[in-house]
Simulated scan of single mutants.
Amino acid sequence: MHNYKELEIWKMSVAYCPKIYKATERFPEKERFGLISQLNRAVVSVPSNIAEGSAKSSDKHFLIFLENALGSCFEIETQLLVSLELGFLPQHDYDALSSDILIIIKRINNFMNFLSKNL
């Protein structure tokens, strides 16, 4: 088992959550149950899956939750692009948020590769 609070990927993904919440605060009210809700749920899902997976009895099981976290990262990446295309997100915010999620994706991938080698 891993202590999720010591994992850099968990720390980074927790720190990323308020950035998404702040960005979606500026979205149109009509998106409260659309993109706002989807982005906010997806961003919380990343550290939540990392934490939940860390409690599993094996790294093989942990990898499943890391894959789920990675899937949520790809959801966020897609939803940010849609938000940009719809004019809800300024380009500079999109660039910063996209850069951050790409770093998280790379770190999760690296950790998954590390765990896979040790199976």
Rank of each mutant, 00 (worst) to 15 (best):
E29L: 12
E29G: 03
E29T: 11
K30W: 01
K30S: 12
K30Y: 05
K30I: 10
E31T: 08
E31I: 12
R32G: 05
R32V: 13
R32D: 07
F33P: 13
F33V: 12
F33L: 14
G34V: 10
G34R: 04
L35E: 02
L35C: 09
L35M: 12
L35N: 06
L35I: 11
I36G: 08
I36P: 09
I36T: 15
I36R: 15
I36L: 08
I36F: 03
S37G: 10
S37N: 15
Q38E: 10
Q38M: 12
Q38T: 02
L39V: 10
L39K: 03
L39C: 13
L39E: 04
L39R: 03
L39A: 08
L39I: 14
L39G: 11
N40K: 10
N40F: 00
N40D: 10
N40Q: 13
N40G: 07
R41Q: 13
R41W: 02
R41E: 06
R41V: 14
R41A: 14
A42N: 06
A42C: 13
A42D: 06
A42P: 13
A42H: 08
V43C: 14
V43P: 07
V43I: 14
V44H: 00
V44G: 01
V44E: 03
V44L: 15
V44D: 12
V44Q: 05
S45K: 05
S45F: 01
S45A: 15
S45R: 02
V46D: 06
V46S: 09
V46P: 12
V46I: 15
V46E: 01
V46C: 08
P47L: 09
P47D: 06
P47K: 05
P47A: 13
S48A: 15
S48E: 00
S48W: 00
S48I: 04
S48M: 14
N49E: 11
N49A: 10
N49H: 11
N49I: 04
N49M: 08
N49F: 04
I50S: 10
I50C: 11
I50G: 12
I50T: 07
I50M: 11
A51E: 03
A51N: 10
A51K: 07
E52Q: 12
E52K: 08
E52M: 10
E52L: 04
E52C: 12
G53I: 02
G53T: 02
G53L: 04
G53Y: 00
S54W: 00
S54N: 07
S54F: 01
S54V: 03
S54P: 09
S54L: 08
S54K: 02
S54Q: 03
S54T: 04
A55F: 02
A55P: 01
A55E: 04
A55H: 04
A55W: 00
A55Y: 01
K56H: 06
K56V: 04
K56W: 01
K56G: 03
K56D: 01
K56I: 03
K56T: 05
K56A: 03
S57C: 06
S57E: 08
S57V: 08
S57H: 03
S58Y: 00
S58T: 15
